[in-house]
Amino acid sequence: MPTTAAQHCMLCQRQVELTFHHLIPRKMHRRAFFKKHYDKAQLQAGIMLCRLCHKTIHRFYDEMTLAKEYNSLALLLTSEKVQQHIEWAKKQR
């Protein structure tokens, strides 16, 4: 999981060290459905998140749910659980 210097998390907007989150988890890339419906660029697409947000997303949803239902930043932001987490995370250091 690559990390970068302090920037803004794409969910909570905190300025901290970030990690790359694949919008379609890498575990799903080898499955026939994803190979058929997504090109390589779409499979590699992702967003930069702080560790707190990244861990929370994976705690809330399994890989298949993330891949099929929350495979974009806009879709992640529609999740009530993610919205509640963002409100809490914004208050953290």
Rank of each mutant, 00 (worst) to 15 (best):
H22P: 09
H22I: 09
H22C: 02
H22D: 08
L23G: 07
L23M: 13
P25S: 04
P25I: 05
P25C: 00
P25T: 11
R26M: 14
R26T: 12
R26D: 13
K27H: 13
M28Y: 09
M28T: 10
M28G: 04
H29R: 06
H29Y: 06
H29D: 08
R30I: 15
R31E: 15
R31V: 13
R31Y: 14
A32R: 14
A32M: 13
F34L: 06
F34N: 09
F34P: 08
F34E: 09
F34R: 04
F34T: 09
K35C: 13
K35P: 05
K36G: 07
K36A: 14
H37A: 06
H37V: 01
H37D: 12
H37L: 00
Y38C: 02
Y38L: 03
D39M: 02
D39L: 02
D39N: 05
K40N: 09
A41H: 11
A41N: 14
A41D: 15
A41Q: 15
A41E: 15
Q42S: 11
Q42L: 09
Q42F: 09
L43F: 00
L43K: 05
L43P: 06
Q44L: 12
A45N: 15
I47Q: 05
I47Y: 13
I47D: 11
I47S: 03
M48V: 00
M48K: 13
L49N: 11
C50W: 04
C50S: 11
C50K: 07
L52M: 14
L52H: 15
C53V: 03
C53N: 08
H54Q: 00
K55C: 12
K55V: 02
K55F: 13
K55L: 13
K55A: 14
T56W: 08
I57S: 07
I57W: 03
H58Q: 05
R59F: 12
R59C: 10
R59Y: 12
F60A: 08
F60R: 01
F60P: 08
Y61Q: 01
D62V: 07
D62K: 11
D62I: 03
D62T: 08
D62L: 05
E63F: 04
E63S: 10
E63H: 08
M64N: 14
T65H: 00
L66Q: 07
L66H: 10
L66E: 10
L66G: 05
L66I: 15
A67M: 09
A67R: 01
A67Y: 08
K68T: 15
K68E: 12
K68C: 10
K68L: 11
E69A: 00
E69P: 02
Y70T: 03
Y70Q: 00
Y70I: 05
N71F: 04
N71P: 02
N71I: 03
S72N: 03
S72C: 04
S72H: 03
S72Q: 02
S72E: 03
A74C: 03
A74W: 02
A74P: 02
L75A: 10
L76C: 01
L76I: 03
L77H: 09
S79M: 09
S79R: 05
S79D: 06
S79P: 04
S79Y: 08
K81Y: 04
K81M: 11
K81F: 02
V82P: 04
V82H: 09
V82K: 02
Q83K: 00
Q83G: 07
Q83M: 05
Q83S: 00
Q83C: 11
Q84F: 04
